[in-house]
Nucleic acid binder design. Sequence first.
DNA 1: AATTAAAAGTACCAAAACGGTACTGTATAG
DNA 2: CTATACAGTACCGTTTTGGTACTTTTAATT
Lengths: 171, 171
Amino acid sequence: MLRISKLTDYGTLILTHMAGHPDRLHSAAGLAEALGLGLPTVSKVLKTLGRHELVSSQRGAHGGYALARPPDRITVADVIDALEEQAFGLTECSSSSGVCAIESDCRIRENWMRINTVVRQALQAVNIADMVHPVHGAAFPAPHTTEHRMHGPARSAAACLPAARADEQEI
Amino acid sequence: MLRISKLTDYGTLILTHMAGHPDRLHSAAGLAEALGLGLPTVSKVLKTLGRHELVSSQRGAHGGYALARPPDRITVADVIDALEEQAFGLTECSSSSGVCAIESDCRIRENWMRINTVVRQALQAVNIADMVHPVHGAAFPAPHTTEHRMHGPARSAAACLPAARADEQEI
DNA sequence: AATTAAAAGTACCAAAACGGTACTGTATAG
DNA sequence: CTATACAGTACCGTTTTGGTACTTTTAATT
């Protein structure tokens, strides 16, 4: 679908919130309350982010989470990498051998790799610190677009979109 | 998951094949055979592509499909737009009103819109004609990357990837 | 006109992914 | 030693996805 999962959206939301208050430690419960998300969900996201070393955790009473690095060193691509992995370590493609040999069209793969690289670079260019400040200048690359059919993450973003077809969240 | 759906992968595969033989009309059956895909699947993809005016169709005996425009005017973004739509015209976000009001964090939405724009531009920069020719020069923008963990579409692309974690297909 | 080739439309179903929740375990502060 | 808060695992309902079948419409050929 080329959409971003809700979990990823929550992740950016959470990290952005934490980046806005770098001083204190954030408990999962506190974040859940502040952002209007379910505690188990926030917990799950934070655990995953911790596993990928985007946040550090302090257990026990008065524990909580903090950003593992300065927010300008956590990119959107990092968040996606952490939260989109979900499951499967290898797939039918590597097991069921090559059915694609037909017609030598497999150079398309090379092209997709290029495309992915490009997209990835776009995502790497945006970091959490950028997200904290409302977009003002030309902070992001290439601002002028003609047709920007937007979409919007799930709760945070999409919840307040204008109208029909507002979801979809396709990039 | 930020992955591309198989249908979209098939779409680029089909269009690329057609672009390689611009002379003749292509029947769904012929394409299915040439690319090693199921006829119903190819049929479905072509119908959708037709609905979005990326291919034109000629019905009846000796009918078939042809590109609706020169391959260099069909971008990957076009293909994605056509094939990723699948279903839902509006979603919970527009119906269940705003739960996101909490904490004013909704400026994140604006940032996501920016990000999406950037990604979209990357996808708009690649067209079907680019896919026909094996990547040679710096045809695509920004080639040099450090970490390009690839993945790969489903049959065409991914089917011949190296090893573990080869799927995922995340962009 | 009949037949045949081929696209168009609709509907359906199994499998997988997503999103969310619960439960149990472990560490730390007071 | 108790309350707090993170860690891990497992589960389940819902939605998407991918694929198939069946019927209808259009056009060429004989």
